[in-house]
């Protein structure tokens, strides 16, 4: 195993150069997949026989909900790595991932509500999935608020890492308990129609859209962390050389 690769990756300057080369490719690929997946879902798939056209929100809702959960897990693992090995770049990644994840979590909640109105007849049902996404949103807000409360960047990094790790341990417990709570209280057990068997002509655009949104997240994450690297390293010679060329 070649460990020097990891050490190089943890160096902000190396990561900045490397991500700069990656950025245009990720951006183009993300744009392509999102545009194809969403236009396909919006214009070219037949309507669902139960829900009519409102189900087209699925091409937006499912990627957002999936990303909200994935980003939190990724953020917590990154935080743990940064906490244990004291890697500055890992904390920059955590601080960049939290707002992206929170924005997708909010999108999943809002599109879920908009989807619920024509499908279930109400904007909100206390369904197990919507409820756990709502709790995930609170976890994101807590993480963002904790970071902003500290003056020192190092203290904030370590505090946020602890909170993220505790949140990661709790996430499956919350998920199971909410699902259990939902089965206990009958009356709110409305299942999303079409979740078990989905026609191929709907599944392929959905998968394209999910891939597109994941790539898009990688793209905006790279944009964010590059700006954050410049911000935190602005007293180093290489950043001054890079930005000073314009002045």
């Amino acid at each position: 195993m070649n460990w020097t690769f990891f050490h190089r990756m943890a160096s902000p300057k190396w990561f900045y150069d490397f991500s700069g080369r990656l950025l245009p490719w990720v951006g183009m690929l993300a744009l392509g997949c999102v545009v194809i997946g969403l236009t396909w879902g919006l214009l070219f798939t037949p309507p669902d026989y139960l829900q009519g056209n409102s189900y087209r929100i699925i091409f937006l809702h499912v990627p957002a909900a999936s990303l909200a959960l994935t980003i939190y897990s990724g953020l917590a693992v990154t935080a743990a790595i940064g906490f244990i090995w004291k890697i500055k770049l890992a904390d920059m990644a955590v601080s960049c991932l939290a707002p992206i994840g929170a924005s997708f979590c909010a999108l999943a909640l809002i599109t879920g509500a908009i989807w619920g109105k024509p499908t279930w007849g109400t904007w909100w049902v206390w369904d197990a999935r919507l409820t756990s996404v709502l709790i995930l949103q609170f976890l994101y807000f807590g993480l963002i608020a904790l970071r902003e409360a500290f003056d020192s960047r190092e203290t904030a990094a370590r505090a946020c890492a602890i909170l993220a790790m505790v949140g990661l341990v709790n996430l499956p417990i919350i998920k199971f308990s909410v699902e259990w709570w939902n089965t206990l209280h009958q009356g709110a057990t409305i299942r999303v129609a079409g979740e078990s068997s989905m026609a191929m002509e709907m599944l392929i655009p959905l998968l394209t859209s999910i891939a597109g949104f994941y790539l898009f997240t990688l793209f905006v994450f790279l944009l964010r962390i590059r700006a954050e690297i410049l911000n935190r390293e602005q007293n180093t010679a290489w950043v001054r050389g890079l930005l000073g060329a314009n002045f």
Binding site: L38, S54, L107, I110, T111, I114, P118
Partner: peptide
């Protein structure tokens, strides 16, 4: 209205 609002927000 529902579909286009959702996509607009997205």
């Amino acid at each position: 209205l529902y579909v286009w609002t959702a996509y607009g927000l997205g």
